[in-house]
């Protein structure tokens, strides 16, 4: 059970949040121009890495805002949280 620092509300218990999977997968602007393989790549393929991962989280039982989080999945250390649309931290 980690503590998550919601960029809008501050530190809250993990039970208030839901995880939305890998972040920075942009929905193609022109899906009709894509081949089946390219569309499948967007639709299905996720990395699910052991280690530092960029994720989408939603403060579902709070402000209902989506934001991004950098988390090490091997030890649950949260390296950064940032708002949607903001640039991910480099390191």
């Amino acid at each position: 059970m980690f503590l998550i620092n919601c960029p809008y509300c501050g530190e809250r218990d993990q039970s208030e949040f839901s995880c939305g999977g890998e972040a920075h997968i942009v929905r193609p602007k022109q899906p009709t121009e894509l081949s089946d393989d390219q569309w499948a790549e967007y639709l299905f393929m996720r990395k699910n890495i052991k280690g530092v991962q960029f994720e989408r989280w939603n403060h579902a039982h709070g402000c209902r805002k989506w934001f991004n989080m950098v988390r090490d999945t091997s030890n649950d250390k949260i390296h950064a949280v940032y708002k949607m649309g903001e640039k991910p931290p480099v390191e």
Partner: peptide
């Protein structure tokens, strides 16, 4: 509602 919010906030802000 959460699905619509998701698209509004993340894909079509």
């Amino acid at each position: 509602l959460s699905k619509l919010e998701d698209y509004l906030q993340t894909e079509w802000p």
